[in-house]
Design a protein around this nucleic acid. Structure first.
Lengths: 335, 335
DNA sequence: CTGAAAGCGCTAACAC
DNA sequence: GTGTTAGCGCTTTCAG
């Protein structure tokens, strides 16, 4: 293994100079910098991560807690994770992957052992058990998702309340007067995951603001459940002309169910999805949708964390403004 | 921060004794062990990961390279990843997540900097560019997937060749005499990802062994592509009575397409999927399937790696035997 | 602009 | 069965 002393000898400087060339923490003459850089390259030197962490009190590692539970859409989680990893690399950090299962103990472990400098926590519930811990931890953290009280935390998410409202606004603008929300599975509401609740609230509030009929229907993420729900809606609400789907795995199934029931999309029923753009684009009927900007959320989360690590203050709450893209699944009502 | 000297003082022993209590690398009297354990608990001591890595030359971290490319099914990747993390924890290791994008540089970085003790690499291609590097690296690695030449490597995967054959055997056993394979997207074959090729080979070989008609059809992972392909198959092969689907995102869409074309599943057409069990179980028509045992593969991969880290020899190649579960999508042909 | 040297917290000989 | 101590490789004062 080649170490800093080897590089120093090779470049005819002291080890500290090599260190400073690497960190840029003090000015180095162009000549030495080049000589050292060349020696590093030539010898293939890589600083020992452990030694560096010990001496500098910085591991250059972030911990990411990823959920994998019923009702959360795995591809979206993966989009977050990849975005976090890529952004972390931009800041010269690596990412340690923790499972939800590890719970508070896992967070405490990586924080207290100095394995990670900072934490990113996904899938936060309204009254998440990990929050007191995160507040007390000496290391900075960012939550993806919104708990009931964000005081003293750093949280980021899509503004799902606005997203729910945006969908309704779009449909009302097209002339629809009766809408239904096909939401996340019941468990997701039961465990008080913020995003499901917030979408529902935004949806309901917007509908009542516009004075139109609106109902909310949690749905299991299977094609069968989607079909049964659609059939029931058609039976119970014969004047229904639009639905909002906030349940990634079944967005296509919902459209399909309407078609099987003899309702054209968007001819008879308009469908707006809240889901990642790539999912909406690829659907058989390209879907009008409010994007879940997983990439941007992951990126911003890491940026916030880096800012905190640098000692800067950051807002408790960052909500991304929803963006609706009109595609082929929505249309105006016949007069 | 509480350090080992604090614990030592509190328990009235030397630092090394605390260290040995933790590692179990030499025998300690029951009395001291308990006293030390209690001090650790009481003070909330956690060894500093960096210091430990520096002194012991072991970081207790594995690196996992996860793919996220077109044609690979994200939920399966996540299943692997979670299984790797959980198993690693069993061995007191953490997992660093690298993206495919980082490529060889990423592997070299975590290996040379001693950030990771060992590597798990997923989505290996037949002639993967990373293989020479892995062979030359001083750290052990395990590949999930099969390159053309496994000499000097440690590879693990489902035996996809056998999986393809098992599907055909099952269908032939039910009396089918004409089968089609609906495979992965064309790109996957193009970049010579082992699993797609191997399934195809096993499928084709088994069909010819049984003397039945067999065709192979790569397919884009969209419902539309699935429907078009099914319609074409029905048109071009009117006597087709069975298909094997090796393309997770469209397993349901294929069944659906047959039904729309007026063919019952399994009444008129039998369908066997190669996909994770949970996907097959939840389909509207529960699918007869050969499982992709992501959990087991991830677990075994880590076990192999730990064995290598302990200096044991392990086989170059571990192929898991496919397991077919009969569900509602296959039936015998009418006489 | 550069060097010397004192740790960072832990492990693992080496002693007894 | 336990203690002493010399590093592990790097960063960062402190000096010049």
């Amino acid at each position: 293994m080649v170490k800093i002393a080897d590089v120093a000898r090779h470049a005819q400087v002291s080890p500290s100079t090599v260190s400073y060339v690497l960190s840029g923490k003090r000015s180095i003459s162009e000549a030495t910098r080049l000589r050292v850089a060349e020696s590093i390259r030539e010898l293939g030197y890589r600083p020992h991560a452990g030694a560096r962490a010990l001496a500098s009190n910085r591991s250059n590692v972030l911990a990411l807690v990823a959920p994998l539970r019923h009702g959360i859409h795995v591809p979206v989680v993966m989009q977050f994770a990849v975005s976090v990893v890529i952004t972390a690399r931009r800041f010269d950090h690596d990412v340690l992957l923790l499972t939800q299962e590890e719970g508070e103990e896992g967070l405490r472990r990586v924080a207290d052992s100095a394995l990670a400098d900072a934490l990113v926590v996904m899938d936060v519930e309204l009254h998440d058990a990990r929050i007191p811990l995160l507040r007390s931890l000496e290391r900075p953290s960012v939550l993806i998702g919104l708990p009931a009280d964000t005081t003293g935390l750093t949280c980021i998410d899509l503004d799902f309340t606005a997203a729910g409202a945006t969908c309704v606004d779009h449909l009302v603008g097209l002339g629809h007067a009766s809408v239904a929300l096909i939401g996340s599975p019941p468990e997701v509401y039961a465990r008080e995951t913020g995003f499901a609740r917030r979408t529902e609230e935004g949806f309901t509030a917007a509908a009542s603001r516009h004075g139109i009929a609106a109902t909310v229907h949690p749905c299991e993420p299977t094609a069968t459940a989607a079909r049964e729900l659609v059939d029931r809606l058609l039976r119970e609400q014969p004047d229904l002309t639009a639905v909002v789907v906030h349940n990634e795995p079944i967005v296509e199934a919902v459209v399909d169910a309407f078609q099987r029931a003899g309702r054209g999309v968007p001819a008879d029923v308009s469908v707006v999805a809240i889901c990642p753009d790539n999912l909406a684009e690829r659907a058989t009927v390209p879907l009008t949708s409010v994007a879940i900007p997983a990439e941007e959320v992951g990126e911003r989360a890491v940026e916030l964390l880096m800012s905190k690590l640098d000692g800067h203050d950051v807002p408790d709450l960052t909500l991304l403004v929803p963006r609706l893209t009109s595609r082929a699944s929505t249309a105006g009502t016949a007069p």
